[in-house]
Simulated scan of single mutants.
Amino acid sequence: MQDFEIANLIYLSALGAVLISWYFVQNKGGLSKLVRDGAAWVFIFVGTMAVIGLWGDIRQNIMPRQMVMTETGQVELPRASDGHYYVDLEINGNTVPFMVDTGATSVVLTQSDAARIGLDPDTLVFFTQAMTANGPVDTAPVTLDQVTLGKFQDSRIPAYVNGGDMDMSLLGMTYLNRFESIQITKSKMILER
């Protein structure tokens, strides 16, 4: 667990303990009413925790992430509620989610995504560096054998595996430059070949 998750768990546990204590103090009366009302509060608390825990999955389903292929050979990526554009690519037969980053020079994979496509992070050599907003980070150069986006297939795409922590892989300009046009409108990014 990350520190943020542990802090949230401690906070919610303390809040739950306070609510339960308050409830027992307020309901000194009948035990059956106390048990019935207590069970209702437990169900509400567990339901709230379930929604919080599943919010990432719910958000993925609500928030449009995948491209829409048009008849004219365009890829349309809807803008997500956070203002970014996301797309799933198939790399070496495995689906990898990316955040489109026109400010990134290269395609950069997280270590978990690298492992998903068959690259063993333990055998990678992190001898190059990239400058990020948080400073320099070690990277390992790799080549992606087969990359598919809808009907577009590309081979031998240069990329890097990030040696540090990263939330998700970045789709940078070494891949985006394969498109003739990149257009950003109010609600979508349009890639065209």
Rank of each mutant, 00 (worst) to 15 (best):
L15N: 04
S169G: 11
G103M: 12
G47F: 01
D122Y: 05
S13C: 07
F24N: 14
I117Y: 00
Q74E: 15
M1I: 06
V108R: 04
V25W: 12
T128G: 07
P136M: 06
L149H: 05
L149E: 05
I182L: 15
P64R: 04
L176K: 13
D88G: 02
P141C: 09
L77S: 10
Y23W: 13
L109P: 08
S169W: 02
S21Y: 10
S32K: 08
T102N: 12
V142Y: 06
S181L: 11
A7C: 02
D37L: 10
T110M: 07
R59Y: 13
D57H: 03
T123G: 03
G103V: 06
S32Y: 05
S169L: 05
K186R: 14
D167I: 03
D37P: 00
G47N: 07
N8P: 00
G118L: 04
G93N: 09
A114K: 04
I157N: 01
S81F: 12
F126D: 03
M69H: 06
M131A: 14
N94R: 15
F24L: 15
V46F: 13
T95I: 15
T148E: 06
N177W: 01
A140N: 06
S21A: 15
P97T: 06
G29N: 14
V125T: 12
E192Y: 05
A115K: 14
R36D: 04
D138Y: 06
Q66Y: 06
P121S: 09
R79P: 08
A140H: 06
I10Y: 00
Q111S: 07
Y175H: 05
T185Q: 12
E90N: 13
